[in-house]
């Protein structure tokens, strides 16, 4: 496995060992190992149905695995009592695929919920911090007063990111952040993610289908296949793996375009 070579003494915020997830007869993960190191953006890719979102759910405590351990910020997540687990999970932010903003609250109130509930702030304090978060993710002030149903897809993603960032978590889980966005919006979201990572230094677990996102933001890529992590490493290392799925994925027509696009932008900047 290429995992050993990555293990250069960096601190792993999330450490998955021997994870098994199954639904009835159907085994989704079978002995999956994965590490997420401090400060990195880890892209998780894989074909449809390889259990990327299931993996994310079991990392954030929503899905008890059938076997294996998940160490989350140094603690064994599923050995904890439910209350302690909930407290631990609070120290991460999750961006769900469709945003999952609370539909009965305005965007500003959505961002304020964790601040009021967990940080014990008053409503006005929470609101003033929520304004900052709103501006950080690049939303116009008017968007803060709107309800989620009145937002466009890109705005929903940004608002959900702002909510995920509310408690300044050291860890972010993003489930397909660029799905449903147009290429320009997706690229802007990628840039935003990089800017925020540089400013706040959080680590990101990023499930994605989007090759452009992989090229633009990910420090490391993990490929899910055959119920476990087939290969991890930098994009170049992974793309050089002689595996048919990986080859098709990174060197198919779409993969090549994304690669060229990154190279061009690198030259320009």
């Amino acid at each position: 496995m290429s995992q050993a070579s990555d293990n250069t003494g960096r601190e792993a915020l999330v450490q998955v060992r021997g994870l098994v997830n199954r639904f009835g007869e159907q085994v989704v993960h079978d002995g999956l190992d994965l590490d997420l190191y401090r400060g990195e953006i880890l892209g998780v890719v894989g074909g449809s149905g390889t259990g990327k979102s299931v993996l994310l759910r079991s990392l954030v405590g929503l899905l008890q695995p059938a076997a294996g351990t998940v160490h989350f910020l140094g603690e064994d997540l599923y050995a904890l009592y439910e209350m302690d687990r909930a407290r631990l999970i609070c120290r991460s932010g999750v961006l769900f695929q469709k945003g999952a903003l609370f539909s009965s609250l305005t965007v500003l109130e959505n961002i304020g919920v964790p601040l009021v509930e967990h940080a014990g702030l008053s409503r006005s304090q929470a609101e003033s911090l929520a304004w900052v978060k709103l501006a950080l993710v690049g939303l116009a002030p008017e968007a803060g007063l709107r309800y989620p149903a009145e937002l466009s897809g890109g705005m929903v993603k940004r608002a959900a990111l702002a909510r995920a960032l509310a408690l300044d978590p050291p860890l972010l889980f993003l489930d397909e952040p660029s799905s449903g966005l147009d290429p320009i919006g997706a690229a802007a979201f990628d840039r935003l993610l990089l800017t925020l990572r540089d400013a706040f230094g959080f680590s990101v677990f990023l499930v994605t289908h989007d090759l452009d996102t992989l090229h633009a933001v990910c420090d490391r890529v993990a490929v899910l296949a055959d119920k476990r992590v087939r290969v991890t490493g930098t994009l170049e290392e992974v793309a050089a793996t002689p595996d048919s799925w990986v080859q098709d994925y990174f060197h198919g027509p779409r993969g090549r375009t994304a690669q060229q696009a990154t190279q061009t932008t690198d030259e320009v900047s």
Partner: peptide
């Protein structure tokens, strides 16, 4: 440098106008 980056990012965010809620 990280802290400077953080302060500048927050500073930019604070330059955005705020509405009456």
């Amino acid at each position: 440098p990280e802290r400077r980056e953080l302060l500048l990012t927050v500073c930019n965010a604070l330059l955005h106008p705020v509405l009456d809620t």
